[in-house]
């Protein structure tokens, strides 16, 4: 038996909205430590890794490890039926072919349940090594969203370079060129408005803007986003989801011929 209850149901709604265009389907792996998902997009260019800790839920029970095959478009349809203030409970029997979602309004006067048909999905897990990155940048998630949105209107790829001067995003296209540089800035009083640049060594990598732009659909989940860069490795774009866990997007760089 699997059962997970979260008072702040809107978090689940936002998570699925952030993922559903990138990955159409994937397995929710549940165990007594929590719920996780690792899924690649259809072209295997990027990977989503979601980790929700057992103690981040208001109630969590998982008697047997299970892989629940989810079609995210269908899960999104069901979660759209939940109110933003609703408590959401996920439930499944062992080896079930459906996941039950129960929505409770805060006033307790409206309770609904939906069953989502589960799929059987063959998924290949990739081992992601713990890594020291050359540059780690924490910035407001709204700032990240603005940068990738603005640059997407100019070009297809972005060169991200981190130096002691700051982190620079450069692109070019038919219109012309664009450069946006952010500097380390801890002046704003609110920590979520600050920009932290932790540079071990200068690094520069090129990425497809379409994917970086897609990752910013996770903006409503967290006030800050962390970008991690190392030469010849995928960039990590990470959103901390409060005390519940995190969603990480990995994007393979462009490689010179």
């Amino acid at each position: 038996m699997f059962e997970a209850r979260i008072t702040q149901g809107s978090v689940l709604k936002k998570l699925v909205e952030a993922l559903k265009e990138l990955v159409t389907e994937g397995n929710f792996d549940v165990s007594n430590t929590g719920l996780s998902l690792q899924a690649m997009d259809s072209s295997h260019v990027c990977l989503v890794s979601l980790t929700l800790r057992e103690d981040g839920f208001d109630h969590f029970r998982c008697d047997r490890n299970m892989a629940m095959g989810i079609h995210f478009g269908n899960l999104s349809k069901i979660l759209k039926c939940a109110g933003n203030e609703d408590t959401i409970t996920l439930k499944a029997e062992d080896n079930a072919d459906q996941l039950t979602l129960m929505f409770e309004a805060p006033s307790q006067d409206r309770i609904s349940d939906f069953d989502l048909k589960l799929m059987s999905i063959e998924s290949e897990h990739l081992g992601i090594p713990d890594q020291d990155y050359s540059a780690e940048v924490k910035l407001p998630s709204s700032e990240y969203q603005r940068i990738v949105r603005d640059l997407t209107s100019i070009g297809d790829t972005v060169l991200i370079s981190a130096t002691k001067e700051g982190i620079k995003f450069s692109t070019s296209g038919d219109v012309g060129t664009a450069n946006i540089t952010l500097r380390h800035n801890t002046t704003p009083e609110k920590p979520e408005e600050q920009t932290f640049i932790d540079l071990k060594e200068p690094v520069a990598l090129t990425f497809a803007l379409r994917y970086l732009n897609n990752f910013s659909k996770a903006t409503p989940l967290a006030p800050q986003v962390k970008l991690s860069l190392t030469k010849d490795l995928p960039i990590v774009v990470e959103y901390q989801v409060g005390e519940l866990g995190s969603v990480r997007f990995y994007l393979a760089p462009k490689i010179d011929d």
Binding site: M40, S43, H44, V45, C46, L47, E124, H125, L126, G127, I128, P129, T157, T206, A208, L233, P234, Y250, A252, P253, K254, I255, D256, D257
Partner: peptide
Amino acid sequence: KANQGRMDTFFTAL
């Protein structure tokens, strides 16, 4: 022109 790398090239299957 740069080619798009794939995730499988960077991380190995478990």
